[in-house]
């Protein structure tokens, strides 16, 4: 019982750590006040991942839908098509043929799902439970720097940086194994309700 080591374990251990909320700093609270509270956010994204073992970065792009209170759809369109559904149940990958891949049995997926949803919203209060946060800039152009509070999470991330204004503009993941990932969002739009397709995907178990 003393040696629980998997990443899933790591992520759970860090992510389920409900450290008492730090008092949001002034800027952080301004950010919270300033970000969009729309029920639905849609955007296009480009993800660039730099890995030491590869001669060139990996680039993926696609569309993103965030439905408040329900979850997140991550639809990769280039270089291949796949949809990831992140909700309270965890993360499910749905192939181009519409068939879900067998979900990974890792018990921490709900938490992974939760933290990624918090990153893209951004849900500052939730993030502050897992990370030490510092805010730079002003409400019109801000940066949040997240440092994992626990050693376990530091094995995965060195730090995470989020830039944004009313919407998140980009997320940078500096990973412990040397990989570096940048996700950029463009053409973010607000909406009142998810469309039928989005609704159907998010409601699946």
């Amino acid at each position: 019982m003393s040696g629980k080591l998997t990443l899933s374990a790591f992520v759970i251990f860090c992510l389920s750590a409900f450290v008492p909320l730090a008092h949001a700093q002034d800027l952080a609270s301004q950010i919270v006040a300033g970000v969009s509270r729309a029920p639905v956010l849609r955007a296009e994204f480009t993800q660039i991942k730099t890995i030491a073992a590869l001669t060139r970065p990996l680039v993926t792009s696609g569309r993103f839908t965030y439905v408040r209170g329900q979850g997140l759809l991550w639809r990769i369109e280039q270089p291949y098509r796949a949809t990831y559904v992140l909700n309270e149940q965890g993360i499910v990958e749905i192939g181009d043929n519409g068939v879900a891949r067998a979900p990974t049995a890792a018990p921490g997926l709900q938490h992974v799902s939760r933290i990624f949803r918090a990153l893209f919203e951004p849900d500052v209060a939730l993030l502050q439970q897992y990370f030490d946060t510092t805010a730079n800039g002003d409400a019109a152009r801000w940066e949040l720097v997240l440092t994992p509070q626990q050693a376990a999470l530091r094995h995965v991330f060195k730090n995470v940086r989020i830039h944004g204004a009313r919407f998140v503009d980009d997320v940078k993941l500096d990973e412990a194994n040397g990989d570096f990932t940048v996700i950029r969002f463009r053409r973010t739009q607000e909406a009142a309700t998810p469309d039928d397709d989005e609704q159907r995907l998010l409601r699946r178990q």
Binding site: T6, T60, W74, Y80, Y84, L86, V112, F116, H155, V156
Partner: peptide, 9 residues
């Protein structure tokens, strides 16, 4: 490419 799978790193 899987954006969310990090395994044991």
């Amino acid at each position: 490419y899987d954006p969310f799978r990090r395994g044991l790193g």
